[in-house]
Amino acid sequence: MSTAPPPRAWRRYTPAQTVIHTAARVALAAITIWMLARLGVTWEYVADAPSQVADLLGRMFPPEWSFIGALVDPLVQTINIATLGTAIAVVLAIPIAFLAARNTTPNRATYGLGRLVMVVSRSVDTLIWALIFIIVVGPGSLAGVLAVAVRSIGFVSKLFAEGIEEIDAGQVEAVAATGASRGQTLLYAIVPQVRPVFTGVCIYRWDINVRESTVLGIVGAGGLGFALNEAILGLEWSRVGLILVVVLGVVVISEAVSAFLRKRVT
């Protein structure tokens, strides 16, 4: 008598949702195609690109190993720019971090000042800072050091300030309750709490700065980038290959050193 009920339908999304999803996808695709069209791609170049890259790599490798002697000095310069830039940034970032941390800043104006320095420093790339400093102090390592330092202040002080905001107020209260002065409370209750964060951030930023320093020379601020730019302008591709190998080595090693040291301090 009774017939079997018809098989029930199940859909993950309701018809309305399906329509919305499809519309979103179509819109995304349309925007993509429109932007692609506007890129003004010369398709012959694109079609040619793989063979161009292959050709370039073919000329780069094997690298001109005998050129390595001329790279020692730029390499040392690169490391120096990164290290000195980081050191200057850290020294300047410490007071800014205390101004920009809610629990240590004296008042709202100082807090705003600290945040302003951070934003200005962080929103301009190292390379653009380098362009600016080259105008002021001329091409060379000094411009690189200043660019790295100024760009790093914002990054370092932001992370420092976050570290300061996370400290346990109870420990500070306890040391103050013994009759310790402000300076002593800083040394005994605040410094021990923020030290691992500070050390970790310094090492981390140094690692980033080594990578940045490898290209600063392209705009004239010293280091391996300078040698790279010269080699490219001179079409010395096998030298370019060698420089790229050196850059790869420096970046990988500094990252490994940084990872090792950071693991030790925490």
Binding site: E173, A174, A177, T178, P192
Partner: peptide
């Protein structure tokens, strides 16, 4: 601060400086 030296305080959460 000199007066605080004469009062020893003991805390609920101990409030030791953990990393010292």
């Amino acid at each position: 601060r000199d007066a605080r030296r004469r009062m020893g305080m003991i805390f609920q959460e101990f409030n030791l400086v953990e990393r010292l």
